[in-house]
Design a binder for these strands. Structure first.
Length: 661
RNA sequence: GCUGCUGUAGCUCAGUGGUAGAGCGCGUCAUUGGUAAUGACGAGGUCGGGAGUUCAAUUCUCCCCAGCAGCACCA
């Protein structure tokens, strides 16, 4: 009796029901006992919340959940199997010398980092994919074994897999290394699992691209070849995913920027934007909108120098920590002698740098005159144009440039003002994002790192100040231990765009360091000198990048107030050019950005062209409209027209075309 | 910066060891038309830059530059 009890274990299912099984029962056996269909759909189990293989014996009472392919978790496990079993084995079949590194899953797919003797081409990718299909057809069972450290190392040394050896050697466990084999094919892969029971359960997959990636993400280490792939439950899902990728490509701001004639780049100013009239209209609208918001929130706008002597950068600490990202200029008049050097050796004794940040300059403004505790908080805003010497490979359209303008501001305040300032900032940021169409904001509070300046009391106060501010604003947030900057804790804000991608734009950073280094102070109530706390903050981050995000999120169809051309007035026949001009002039007078299209083209052609150019409102005027003093309005994205009285239309459009603030 | 791929007309892209082609756009002319392409004709290119192989290179080889993807870095 006692013996029998010992051999029985209680398995609790997610619905709360419990069943008894013999100790050593496996997940797949339990699934089969519940329903055959469940066993068929099962890909893994969760035992007490931990993912395990269906074939793992369960030896003690446990809460068990069966993971099926329908779930996101199940799909991820399937992708993992495609990477670690199909892709890895296919590569080893075709390239026996290839060295496998790691093959995790990522959003929408997976990759595998592998060292090849020769670089791969896209034809190789097709070859590998073909081989994967062949392997999948074998429906081979996937069998796991548990091994000791020594055995595992020996197995991979035997197979000349140095990366696997390195992984195992670096692991702190001594036992229980999981090796997955496919039947008796001789293929094994090290993996934390779980994996499918057999290749039979694999859905559809496609290899997507090749890229380089450093071993262990370290740029000083070996560059491996990364093969990216995607896998889905069925063809329909794969098709939808590929379609989504196409859509994202269509929204690419670099493409839309060229099509819509907003901006361009050229080699003579790599990484810097040439704004065209239409693009700069958007830029100016954004800047004007933020300026009004900041002004209303008690900020004072300033403008500080572009070129600053390196002495100040030395004091601020940028020279030591940030110099490789700075553009440095000798302060000497260049020689006009064509044969000689442009500047003398001596010129390098006096250097200046284009500012990569505005903060040290803002402290200079703060430091003018004596500040009293009564003056605080002081909020200096600047549309500061910064230059950063970014690695060439990092440059990416408007998203990553070498010259950009921040909607930057620095708040100088007392320690007791941190929370109020942070609350005010969070509120402002929420309002701005909402005005711009971003209501999904992810917030992270980064707390003290190991290496830091400032006392623990100060950090306590600062971290709690930010935490209270977030709670007060009602923004949901996560806390990231150790992720703060050495000079203070920070809040990072990520917005989610129309197709679900996230962008880091806004930030609020406390700084205990810079006021100290640049000797900023105010006179307290006690008549003594005190250090102000400095808050760095931005909402858009960089105007360039944010406009890029707006273009992609709106797929070029910007809100009316931001559209470079808000209205085009097109006569149907040239007889009514004069009326079109009259409509245009009246709208212009009402503050609308409006143009006429008097070209000798059919109305169809004009509608098509301006629709492609993403003009939000097209007004057609012909005989009827001219006679009745009306306009026929057509909105972008609709093929309906509405005929309205001219004066009324101007009034309502003018209202609609206004910025949200 | 690293790895790989790419570079042909304003744009999208064919193509070839023997001096280059399409569509769109652009220009001219005709056409005055009611909501996503009117027609005809025409102009446009040192085939990214440099070197090499060759009788001959846009095509093959090497170097450089730039763009793209990813990595690393980051607003």
């Amino acid at each position: 009796m006692e013996q029998a009890l010992k051999n029985k274990i209680q398995i609790t299912l997610p619905d709360g029901s419990a069943r008894a099984f013999a100790a050593g029962v496996t997940g797949i056996e339990i699934a089969e006992s519940i329903a055959k269909s469940l066993a068929k759909a099962a890909v893994a189990v969760k035992i007490d919340g931990v993912q395990r293989d269906l074939s793992d014996p369960i030896t003690s009472d446990a809460a068990l959940e069966i993971i099926t392919l329908d779930s996101e978790e199940g799909l991820e496990i399937m992708r993992h199997t495609v990477a670690a079993q199909l892709l890895a084995r296919a590569v080893k079949n075709l390239y026996p010398d290839a060295k496998l590194a790691i093959g995790p899953t990522i959003e929408n797919g997976f990759y595998y980092d592998i060292e090849f003797k020769e670089p791969l081409s896209s034809e190789d990718l097709e070859k590998i994919e073909k081989e994967m299909r062949k392997i999948k057809e074998t429906n081979a069972p996937i069998v796991k074994s548990l091994n000791s450290k020594a055995d595992t190392i020996a197995a991979f040394k035997d197979r000349a897999e140095p990366y696997k050896v390195e992984i195992v050697e670096g692991a702190d466990q001594e036992d229980g290394f999981q090796l997955y084999a496919q039947g008796d094919t001789g293929f094994i892969d090290l993996c934390r699992g779980p994996h499918l029971l057999s290749l039979k359960q694999v859905g559809v997959f496609k290899l997507m691209s090749l890229a380089g990636a450093y071993w262990r993400g370290d740029s000083s280490k070996q560059m491996l070849t990364r093969i990216y792939g995607t896998a889905w439950r069925n063809d329909k899902e794969l098709k939808e995913y590929l379609h989504m990728l196409e859509e994202a490509e269509k929204r690419d701001h670099r493409k839309l920027g060229a099509e819509m004639d907003l901006f361009h780049f050229q080699v003579e100013a790599q990484g810097s934007v040439f704004w065209h009239p239409k693009g700069f209209t958007i830029y100016n609208q954004m800047e004007g909108y933020i300026r009004r918001r900041l002004n209303n929130a008690g900020y004072k706008e300033i403008k500080t120098p572009q070129l600053i002597d390196n002495k100040l950068w030395e004091k601020s600490g940028h020279w030591g920590k940030y110099r490789e990202n700075m553009f440095v200029v000798p302060d000497e008049i260049p020689s006009t002698d064509d044969d000689g050097p442009v500047v003398s050796d001596k010129a390098f004794e006096k250097l200046m740098a284009l500012k990569p940040m505005n903060c040290p300059a803002h402290v200079q403004v703060f430091n003018q005159g004596i500040k009293s505790y009564r003056d605080l908080p002081i909020r200096f805003a600047e549309f500061g144009c910064c230059h950063r010497n970014e690695p060439h490979g990092a440059l990416h359209g408007l998203m990553r440039v070498r010259q950009f303008t921040q909607d930057d501001a620095h708040i100088f305040c007392r320690e007791d003002q941190i929370t109020d300032e942070a609350v005010a900032f969070c509120d402002l940021l929420k309002t701005v994002y909402s005005d711009l169409g971003f209501d999904d904001v992810k917030v992270a509070l980064s707390l003290r790192p190991e290496m830091r300046v400032g006392s623990d009391e100060l950090w306590d106060k600062a971290e709690d100040g930010l935490r209270q501010a977030l709670l007060k604003t009602g923004l949901e947030f996560t806390e990231e231990e150790g992720e703060g900057a050495f000079y203070g804790p920070k809040i990072d804000y990520q917005i989610r765009d129309a197709i679900g991608r996230t962008w880091q734009c806004g930030t609020l950073q406390l700084d205990f360091n810079l006021p100290e280094r640049l000797d900023a102070s105010y006179v307290g109530q006690d008549g003594e000198k005190h250090r102000p706390v400095m808050l760095h903050r931005a909402i858009l981050g960089s105007l360039e990048r944010f406009i890029g995000v707006m273009i992609e999120s709106y797929a070029g169809k910007l809100p009316l107030w931001l559209a470079p051309t808000q209205v085009v007035v097109a006569p149907i026949v040239s007889e009514f050019d004069a009326y079109a001009q009259e409509v245009c002039d009246a709208m212009k007078a009402a503050g609308i950005r409006v143009e006429t299209d008097l070209r000798n083209e059919k109305i169809n052609y004009k509608v098509r062209e301006h629709s492609h150019a993403k003009v939000p409102v097209i007004i057609a005027v012909g005989e009827r409209e001219a006679t009745d003093k009306t306009v026929a309005i057509r909105r972008l994205g609709s093929d309906k027209q509405s005929v309205e009285d001219l004066a009324k239309a101007i009034e309502s459009l003018a209202q609609e075309c206004k910025a949200p603030y």
